[in-house]
């Protein structure tokens, strides 16, 4: 049923379709991918479309786009249930669900203002995912402080 809704917009030849984005989060996905619309990319956006699986969902289609590891990690933090379809020659070549990685590297900023990673040092932030009673938390490799998933979403490097 979800795939039928994808057909509301023309199929893309080459690029990616980010499906099953939590409803209302498509703009945030574009933002963390640093796609502003001024970069000339052809982007289709569907928001709050009905979906059998989760009620409603958002979909983003980006033509001529490949996703790097850190971009996939960012999408996983914004919308942990999103699926990625890699399209080539109008065919789905690859389909997978994003996964919040165990080590989140170079994707988020530490919320502790006094953490050394927030100064001008030549370091890449690294957080380790831990499970906690209320979901998951992320521990900074440098200062040892933890952030909840909602804090992490606000701290994605944009």
């Amino acid at each position: 049923m979800g795939d039928e809704k994808v057909l509301r917009i023309n199929k893309i030849g080459d690029g990616i379709v980010i499906d099953h984005i939590e409803p209302g989060n498509a703009l945030e996905v574009l933002e963390v991918l640093k796609i502003s619309g001024k970069d000339g990319m052809t982007v289709s956006l569907l928001m709050n479309v009905p979906s059998g699986k989760v009620g409603t969902k958002d979909i983003v289609k980006i033509e001529k786009k490949k996703l790097a590891k850190n971009e996939l990690d960012k999408i996983s933090l914004v919308s942990p249930k999103a699926t990625i379809n890699v399209i080539s020659d109008y065919e789905i070549k690859q389909k997978f669900t994003v996964d919040i990685p165990e080590k989140v590297v170079g994707v988020i900023k530490c919320s502790n203002q006094n953490c050394v990673t927030n100064s001008k040092e030549p370091v890449t932030t690294t957080f380790t995912r831990e499970s906690s009673q209320d979901g998951m938390r992320f521990r900074c490799h440098y200062c040892d402080r933890t952030m909840s998933l909602s804090e992490v979403k606000k701290s994605i490097i944009r």
């Binding site: 502790n112 006094n114 953490c115 050394v116 990673t117 040092e121 370091v123 490799h141 440098y142």
Partner: peptide, 13 residues
């Protein structure tokens, strides 16, 4: 000794 948290970890690297 440094006033910022994580400074020693960074230094060790």
């Amino acid at each position: 000794r440094h006033p910022m948290e994580g400074a020693a970890r960074l230094a060790s690297e």
